[in-house]
Design a protein around this nucleic acid. Structure first.
Lengths: 359, 359
DNA sequence: TTGAAAGCGGTACCAA
DNA sequence: TTGGTACCGCTTTCAA
């Protein structure tokens, strides 16, 4: 009596060979579409393979052809559920699809230990390359693997301690442009909401804010600057508190998209006030065109970042010894909810949009 | 002369063994934390491994311990950049983190051929299981692999042609509850916007719409029913067209979240009208609480779906011959932008929320 | 055009 | 407590 529920071991090339009456090597040739096998034999092997439900074992194959690549890429983002990370993952998928690569995805959650752990997991699987939105202060722990041929592209945050390819955006320029626009609109009391300034992106965005003010001969008002905000809720409370001041801000620059959400929440529940502050924010989000409020957004082209990272990776894998390149993309300024037409202008000088720089 | 740029081959267990003056097998024991190795030896091997930048080769290991699991899971969603898919991926990551699993992620894009291709890629990598948001009309192409021990959980869409575990939601009940709520509010001319009804979810959501009307002794007005809408833009045009009718709808039910966006776009550019139609939609999105318009949303608990899928997978891998189980989760109704308090009510009878049913 | 044998990096099994 | 040997599924090399 046969129990149909017993796991049936997978057919191997040996099984296919036996069933087809050829040698194992011939099956290998057929599976890998190598020339030099008679049509008749090819057909027979193919049909037997299908019949037995044969699946090529990529791991065994990669093991034998040592030095070849596994065709897998590790993508380590902050949080795969986050809009930015998810779109980056998708852009990488599209850009690598033609080469048949497969992506291992994982979330770092701003935890350096977790980053190293996940990197270890992926390297144990012998990924050809890593796309890394790093949280560790330095990435030199990757040096032995890079010497062994691992490709690495740092994304969103520049690498520290290693010379690897990178795709980042001009955070300083983007912030400066947004804040300058607010100043052009006549605002003088501009508030800043940002993350912990030991994070490079948060630091740069605050620097851009400061530069914009400095260009007008002004300095930040400490009462209107809040660092270390991590959630929309924290931003909401910060804004509500600011608005009760005797001299409330007339404009607010939120240096992360969740903080922009917090601003919107604060103003949403504060419907009575005569002139709500203008809001500018960093990083686009869904439905900002529907909130019924003018909004100035510094937008990154995430798809372009993904495409660029994939291109750098491809070049790197072709010539592992090439010098590291760093591409800095210029974000753009977008106006939402403008009573007039929708305006778009480059965040930095027009000529520099999309410029790449070697460091 | 040494070229420091030459790729240095990775250290293997053999290298570590030689350098540490022990046998390869001892290194294996240390790496796998097997007992029966003296502390001194463990320490020496560990330090040599670190020195040589040794990385365990999971593929080779899996190859030898045949029948064991690879610790990798393939996640095939419609589009990793889409909010729903991305959150599902994240929920799966969290639910499998404790077991140290790694996720291979890919987007199907509603393309059956692509689904089969990606499944092939992942099975070549010998994933232990697949989480599948299927687009193929039938999934019986997986039968040989399931017999070989592959775990499969279908998510969002019920499996066809195979008996595998599944996590879906009650699309009929969710839609019916939303439309009944509109009818309770006094609406009689309720429009329906949906995807192609040959998709199971689209079909079920229309069925729920019909049932809600039928419970009030009404039938859908063909002029107010639009199938086959795929994008927000298509929905926007459909709504704009409906609103120019002599008898426009007083309420609209959008059966997919992008279609809800389309409705909002249409109404946003139609600010003059005295009484805009009420809107209900299927699937939550970001910032719906900020659009300044009352909105009724059928919300799926994506995280719960992911947790459930992971649980079913774990059970399945523990007992591969267990009968397939199908868990149907009840969505909830959420009111946004309600002038009063935010209300939440179960979409179906309260007692059934989260109910699991064996088919 | 086809096949036999070695070996990729690691683990199982058994012997020392 | 440690090591030798076979071998996982496949590709490489070389011979037939």
């Amino acid at each position: 009596m046969t129990r149909s529920t017993d796991p049936v071991p997978r057919a191997t090339m040996r099984d296919v060979a036996a069933q087809a009456g050829v040698s194992l090597k011939t099956v290998s040739r057929v599976v890998n579409e190598e020339p030099g096998v008679r049509e008749v034999v090819v057909d027979r092997v193919r049909s037997v393979a299908a019949e037995l439900g044969y699946r090529h074992h990529r791991g065994a194959s990669d093991l034998r052809r040592r030095g070849q690549r596994t065709g897998a890429i590790g993508v380590l983002v902050q949080d795969v559920a986050n809009d930015y990370s998810a779109r980056l993952l998708r852009a990488l998928e599209d850009a690598t699809r033609a080469r048949g690569l497969i992506l291992l995805a994982a979330s770092i959650d701003e935890d350096p230990d977790r980053e190293r752990h996940l990197v270890g997991q992926m390297l144990a699987r012998r990924v050809d390359a890593l796309v890394l939105m790093a949280t560790t202060p330095r990435q030199d722990y990757l040096l032995p693997d890079i010497r062994a041929g691992l490709g690495v592209v740092c994304v969103d945050r520049a690498p520290v301690g290693v010379e690897v390819d990178a795709v980042t955006i001009d955070n300083v320029g983007g912030s400066r442009a947004a804040v300058e626009r607010l100043l052009d609109q006549g605002h003088r009391r501009v508030a800043f909401l940002g993350d912990l300034p030991n994070l490079a992106t948060a630091h740069d965005r605050f620097a851009g804010f400061r530069e914009a003010l400095a260009n007008r001969g002004a300095v930040p008002d400490p009462a209107l600057v809040r660092h270390g905000l991590r959630t929309a809720e924290e931003a909401r409370r910060a804004v509500e508190e600011m608005l009760t001041r005797s001299a409330p801000p007339t404009a607010i620059f939120a240096a992360r998209n969740v903080l922009t959400t917090g601003c919107l929440l604060a103003l949403h529940h504060d419907v009575g006030r005569s002139t709500p502050p203008a809001i500018a924010g960093f990083d686009d989000m869904a439905h900002l065109d529907l909130v019924g409020r003018p909004l100035l957004i510094v937008r990154q082209d995430v798809e372009e970042i993904g495409r660029t990272a994939a291109r750098l990776l491809e070049e790197r894998l072709l010539s592992p010894t090439r010098r590291a390149r760093s591409v800095v993309l210029a974000p753009e300024l977008v106006s939402y909810g403008d009573p007039g037409a929708r305006r778009r202008a480059p965040a930095t000088r027009p000529g520099r949009a999309g410029a790449a720089a070697n460091r």
